[in-house]
Structures are given as structure tokens and as C-alpha cells.
Computed example of a mutant assay.
Amino acid sequence: MRPLTAHIDLNALRHNYLQARRYAPEARAMAVLKANAYGHGAIACAQALQDLAPAMAVACLEEGQALRARGIECPIVLLEGFFEADELDEVITGGYWSVLHTHWQVDALLTRLARWPQHRMTVLVKCDSGMHRLGFAPEEVGDLCGRLQAHAGIEQTLLMTHFATADTPDSPLLTAQLETINALRCLLDLPGCFANSPATLGVPASRHDWVRPGVMLYGVNPLEPQHALHDEIEQILRPVMTLESRIIAVRELQSGEPIGYGARHVTHRPTRVGVVACGYGDGYDRHAREGTPVLVEGKRAAIAGRVSMDMLTVDITELPEAGIGSRVTLWGRDASGSELSVSEVASWCDTIAYTLLTGILPRVPRCYHQDDDARESV
């Protein structure tokens, strides 16, 4: 009954996936669906992409199990690998591809493969080319890959890395990482899986055999504003989530009246305030500053006062037609075609779009939209 809904445009999701294919035409693209598809609903997103994506990627086995239970049959990549050896029976027999980033994982996998001589699996050996988070040192990778390739239970070995600054133009760290990983790829003659979303779009030298589009699938431009391709990408990606609610009350206040907790906002003129059914209990960021934009029936308005658990307040003085029942778009594209990017909202909250999208809580219903006649194909 509460009017807050996250509308998910599955045709936009497919469109964005195809943009990854367009920018990296020689590579295969695994769709990254970790963290419940960045808050959009992993099962529905996987089902929408299953005829396009040759593989999908998740953070852990539990996320993969949820997809398998709903009929997703393509290879599922475990981006952090496995955490306990007890997971390995299912990993080996369930059609998963595992990232390997520590020695104990390699040892455990090769030992457990002996139990399943009828199964062979694909692994991705993660090289720490300079981000210093997960992965083997470059000088270790050759021997590890040789050991894996010599094992009868390993069908395919891919070389993997992750870039720390692919979203930033002219980054010395990106240049160094590319030099390290591309030299290693040539030396070992292995297929490469290097490019995340910003690299898929903006770093041709990273694309190779596989790319890993993640946040771009959901319509978020992963490139920094100063990047030469930023404006181009802004035009081609479509927002997948539209977070929408309605005004549930209107207050008429005189000048000098406080609004909300802490009386942070005090009116400086006679003010109409719209109370919107959305708050931090839904995942909307409590740190949203004064002036954070929203769309009221397609027209811009601004938050006035602190975000509460279940509500936020918007100054609608300049929108005399707005009232109880007026549609409010917190981010996304509204019914009139007006758009408010989640990245812009995130900047007002001193955070990033990833945080807002993944932070939408389960009590917010996801409503999925897909027009089969409008579906794009390769």
C-alpha cells in the first residue's frame, strides 16, 4: 500500500549490456550480478540477460545458488572464489568458475578435484597487478598457472586482474597495471579477463578475451567527469532503476519555521512542504544535504530538512500544482521522460551511486518492466 517502489527497466538492462558488447566487440562479456544485481534483483536481471550473457558473475556461492535455483544454467563466476573447502563439491559439480587468489585455494581445489574425475572446471587466476587487494604477485603467477594447466581436472585457466583507476584519464597506476598484466598475458599465452566497467568502455588495451561489465549494466556512468568519453557514455547508458514515491501530506509554513529533526532547515519565506514516503529505513541516504534534488511530476524540487526513517520533506513552493498524490522520483527516469541520475543524487550525499543502489532495502518492492517487442538483440 505504501507508494514507494523501485521500478526496474529490464529492457534498459539489456540495452546497457549490449553497449558493453559494442565497446568490446572481440570479447565475451560476463554480466556482474553481485550484491543482488547492485540492488536491482539478481534473479530477474539474470533471467533478462540469460539469452545474451555467456557467463554471469557473483561474489560468492550463496549468490550463485540463488541463480541456479531459478534456472540459470550458464557458467557462474565466483569473483572472490570459495571461502571454505567444504564449498568445493558444489563448486566443482555445479558449473561454477572460481577465481583463485590465495595459495590455500589452489591447494584445496586440486586436492578436491580428485574426488570428481568426471568433472573439469574453469578457473581464473587473479594477479595483483598493482591494486593490492586480492591476488598473487606477478612473479608467482607463471608457476601457479603451469601447475593448474597440468592438472587433469582443470579445463581452462584464465588470467585475471582488477584495475584501481580505470575510471580516471591518464592514470599512471592504470598504465603500470596494464603493462604488468599484458606482459604476463603474452608470456603465459593465456586468455585474459581484465576489464571492469570503466575499462570496458574506455581502455581498449584491457579488453582481450573477457570483460566484466558491472555498474554500467545498471545505467551508471563509471567514468569520471573529466574523462574524454564521459559525456558520450552519459548519453548511451539508460537508468535501470527508478525509485519513485508520492507526496502524502502538504504543510503550509510561514517564514522562520523549522522543518524536521534537529530543525536543520528553517524557512526563509512562506513555504509549501511536501512530505514524501521515503526515508533511510528504505535505504535513501540520511546524509542527503539541503538542496538534494528530486523530481515532482517531472519538475525539479529540493529536499528541505533531514531525511527521516520513513519520510523526507521537499520544498514545493515553486510547484503550486503539486500536492497530495503527486509523483516523486528520487532518482531514475519518470513517466514524462525527465531524468535524475543516481550519480547526481549520490554527489549530494557525499557518496557514490553504488552505495545508493545496493542500499535499497527489502521492504521497498521491486516492480519489473519488460516489453518483449522492444527487446534488443545482438
Results as ranks from 00 to 15, higher is better:
residue 98 S to N: 08
residue 325 G to P: 06
residue 180 T to N: 11
residue 116 W to V: 10
residue 67 L to E: 10
residue 4 L to H: 05
residue 307 V to L: 00
residue 280 Y to L: 02
residue 301 A to F: 00
residue 300 R to Y: 02
residue 13 L to C: 01
residue 60 C to T: 13
residue 279 G to Y: 05
residue 203 V to W: 05
residue 310 D to M: 08
residue 336 S to C: 09
residue 135 G to F: 07
residue 68 R to F: 03
residue 83 F to A: 14
residue 337 G to N: 04
residue 163 F to Q: 11
residue 231 D to I: 04
residue 73 E to N: 12
residue 240 V to K: 02
residue 358 T to Q: 14
residue 96 Y to D: 11
residue 130 G to L: 02
residue 146 G to P: 05
residue 102 T to I: 08
residue 86 D to C: 05
residue 137 A to V: 05
residue 111 T to H: 14
residue 131 M to Y: 00
residue 44 A to Q: 15
residue 201 L to E: 01
residue 172 P to K: 03
residue 227 H to D: 10
residue 253 L to T: 08
residue 190 L to A: 11
residue 89 D to S: 15
residue 48 A to M: 02
residue 284 Y to Q: 07
residue 331 W to V: 06
residue 154 I to A: 00
residue 281 G to C: 05
residue 233 I to R: 01
residue 29 A to G: 01
residue 101 H to F: 12
residue 152 A to Q: 13
residue 147 R to M: 03
residue 248 I to Y: 06
residue 76 I to A: 01
residue 32 V to G: 00
residue 231 D to S: 15
residue 28 R to P: 02
residue 209 D to Q: 14
residue 321 E to Q: 15
residue 198 P to W: 08
residue 9 D to L: 06
residue 278 C to S: 09
residue 292 T to V: 09
residue 132 H to R: 14
residue 256 G to Q: 08
residue 196 N to M: 06
residue 105 Q to Y: 12
residue 44 A to G: 08
residue 289 R to L: 14
residue 111 T to S: 13
residue 15 H to A: 05
residue 321 E to T: 13
residue 211 V to K: 01
residue 110 L to A: 07
residue 250 V to T: 14
residue 94 G to L: 08
residue 193 C to Q: 04
residue 160 M to G: 10
residue 151 H to V: 10
residue 147 R to I: 02
residue 316 I to T: 12
residue 100 L to V: 11
residue 236 I to K: 11
residue 16 N to V: 09
residue 37 A to Q: 06
residue 111 T to R: 15
residue 100 L to R: 12
residue 314 V to W: 00
residue 25 P to W: 07
residue 347 S to P: 07
residue 323 G to S: 03
residue 150 A to E: 13
residue 113 L to K: 09
residue 129 S to W: 06
residue 17 Y to V: 03
residue 235 Q to S: 09
residue 141 V to Y: 03
residue 358 T to K: 13
residue 327 R to D: 08
residue 280 Y to M: 08
residue 177 Q to V: 00
residue 37 A to L: 03
residue 102 T to D: 13
residue 200 T to D: 03
residue 274 G to Q: 00
residue 207 R to T: 09
residue 360 I to D: 07
residue 160 M to C: 14
residue 113 L to Y: 10
residue 267 T to Q: 08
residue 351 T to V: 04
residue 218 Y to Q: 03
residue 154 I to C: 01
residue 80 E to P: 04
residue 216 M to V: 03
residue 55 A to M: 15
residue 373 D to Y: 10
residue 39 G to N: 10
residue 285 D to W: 11
residue 297 E to F: 04
residue 267 T to K: 09
residue 82 F to W: 10
residue 376 E to P: 05
residue 266 V to L: 06
residue 154 I to Y: 01
residue 7 H to P: 02
residue 113 L to R: 11
residue 321 E to Y: 12
residue 315 D to C: 04
